[in-house]
Design a binder for these strands. Structure first.
Lengths: 361, 361
DNA sequence: ATTAGCACTCATTGAGGGTTAGTGCTAATA
DNA sequence: TATTAGCACTAACCCTCAATGAGTGCTAAT
């Protein structure tokens, strides 16, 4: 491991692995140039576009240092330099929190579901589509986690002798339905009573809480002898368990295929598979819900192999009470971070606002 | 327009524009070769692979005739021949109704939702995904038309002072929900009565019928003075109107992009747009519901410009009572028709079987 | 009616050569 | 001592050109 010493500007004082201001500027400039052109940046080109006057030779020296420090690589001896993932990390860290965003884009994003009475899923679908259209990359959004969302109402509908359709409406405005089976057939009237009972008892509780409370009720022996209660517990257990794993909406996958960065590589196939499986990307979105504001995963930082040529930019959205989910953009590591970050950030904000307004409170 | 006369085999008798048996064989062979190799077929190659002994020169003569009749084209003078859309039409017409299908594939398709209690949408999603995986093309399926499906149950849920969540469960097993607005706030109890009234009156009626009956009730002045009835009619009108336009599920679009046939052309972008808009493809699926069994749209036969490089193979699925929707494959005109037709046909059959079993009757 | 033979066409491939954008190193310079 | 000019060197890119090969259409022989 080579440890290169670079002058930090102050005469006589030297630090290991610290770049001076000029080196920062050069690196910054290389990255922005590369993001624009997608072509290796040479010393000559750079000396023209960079603000200060600096000869190609000097730039070459600096570039050589940056390369040794792992910020740049050369594809072959006589080619320009290309930023590494480390360089992009440096770059995004140096960006001020969400860069400004053109008014025009703002207005476009704001159009996401100003229509009254849209369901949450529809709003999310529209948002992810809009974001894909604006960014020209693939976009994903996770639907509100069932576990944290609060019950608005439950309905039990008898659809055949042994099947009951359960409909759960959450405060966040999501409707979920599933079918459960019973051995002993119940009348619709009885089911209505059971549903009413569950509504009374669990309205405004989170799914997580409900599951726990039901579990507690089950261990309490006394409840067994109360017919309605016993059925309510038994059906409730089935109704609230295993609320299907968090869903994810995807849009604009096509954009990636048409993007020259991916077109060249043969790794397209595996990238698509990653999207098909969903679970891995879902995990990243879940992760990102922990962070406040925009969060960025760059290339190699992704656990998932197939995503290592990509960067993910995510932001969580929420209603009054909870963080509900996360929206994100998947693109090449050399994407225009400033632009995309501001879009993701703003979209998440609009999403939060819209969903809060539509909440059933 | 040249009218070529070809010997039909019987000495001395000649018909206009009728191919003799040998010409049929040659055309058939060219098409099957081309489907396999995707490369222009030359006379030499063909004379080797075709069953009967026929010199390249003879084949050249026949090919020349076929070209004049519009079954083959040459990209340039010294290239082999390529089948036209007309040739594919000839080919599929000559195929016996659904070709046989390997047991292995059969079993795979049969796995589509043997899981109990799946919702129709989930079954369709699984079927379309399976078909995309097997065919390696893009696949689409239209969800059951709301208009023809019969009401199993309606629920009205008050979610805020001015919003009511309507849930419609159809016999076909589809759950639809939407939000309607009211000016005058009603209690949940009252909504329950209204729902009960609507259930009594309209259960087993098709959406189409219900809309008509409601319309009739509205013009009957006497109903205005009955409070429950008046509300039921008013809410019912909103609840049953404009059941969102038929949905369509898509899977495997990526397969098209990775397919060499499309990769070459620059028309990929417009094809994607066609999928994004959905409406045009939806229309074709709707069309195809009229036909019994498999139906095939080849290249130029498609009204939609963007689809003219493609063939669509569709088959409708149904339950006991109605044709519900249509499932289809979109691929290049040079697809392996035998293989795809059998798969689409079998998938539609399995789909019909599964959905009939899951129907709420 | 069929086929062998021949001249011709055109896409594809690979080699050679010039051009260009880039590098690293060294010596001169401010 | 930091910066820069100069120079030799590299490798991708592009152009041209010739050889190759799969294919054709036409004509004459079978």
């Amino acid at each position: 491991m080579v440890k290169k010493v670079i002058d930090n500007g102050k005469k006589g004082v030297r630090y290991n692995l610290v770049l001076n201001e000029r080196a920062h500027l050069v690196l910054h400039s290389i990255i922005e140039n590369y993001i624009q052109s997608s072509e290796p940046i040479g010393s000559r080109t750079l000396s023209k576009t960079i603000g200060i006057t600096l000869s190609p030779a000097t730039i070459r020296n600096i570039m050589s240092d940056l390369a040794e420090l792992g910020y740049l690589i050369q594809n072959h001896t006589s080619a320009g330099r290309v930023p590494t993932d480390k360089a992009y990390r440096f770059y995004v860290n140096s960006l001020a929190s969400p860069p400004s965003i053109p008014q025009q884009i703002k207005e476009k994003i704001s159009q996401v579901s100003n229509e009254q009475g849209s369901q949450v899923e529809a709003i999310l679908a529209e948002a992810v589509r809009m974001l894909a259209e604006l960014t020209k990359f693939a976009c994903v959004v996770s639907t509100p986690k069932a576990a944290v969302s609060r019950l608005q109402r439950i309905e039990l509908i008898k659809i055949s002798e042994d099947r009951i359709l359960v409909i759960l409406v959450t405060k966040a405005g999501v409707v979920r339905d599933k079918i459960i089976f019973t051995k002993d057939s119940q009348s619709q009237e009885f089911l209505n009573s059971v549903a009413e009972f569950l509504n009374d008892k669990f309205k405004n509780h989170s799914m997580q809480e409900i599951r726990e409370e039901i579990h507690e009720s089950m261990v309490d022996d006394r409840n067994r002898y109360h017919d309605l209660l016993a059925h309510a517990i038994r059906l409730g257990k089935k109704a609230f368990e295993l609320n299907q794993p968090g869903e994810m909406l995807i849009d604009g996958q096509m954009n990636l295929l048409l993007d020259s960065h991916f077109h060249e590589q043969s790794s397209v196939r595996s990238l698509i598979d990653a999207f098909d499986q969903k679970s891995a990307i879902m995990k990243i979105l879940d992760d990102s819900m922990k962070y406040k504001g925009v969060h960025i995963f760059i290339g190699i930082e992704n656990d998932l192999k197939q995503l290592q040529g990509c960067s993910l930019i995510t932001a969580s959205y929420r209603n009054n009470q909870n963080v509900l989910g996360s929206i994100g953009v998947v693109g090449p590591t050399s994407m225009d971070y400033k632009r995309i970050i501001s879009m993701v950030d703003y979209t998440a904000k609009i999403l939060s606002k819209t969903i809060t307004e539509q909440s059933y409170d």
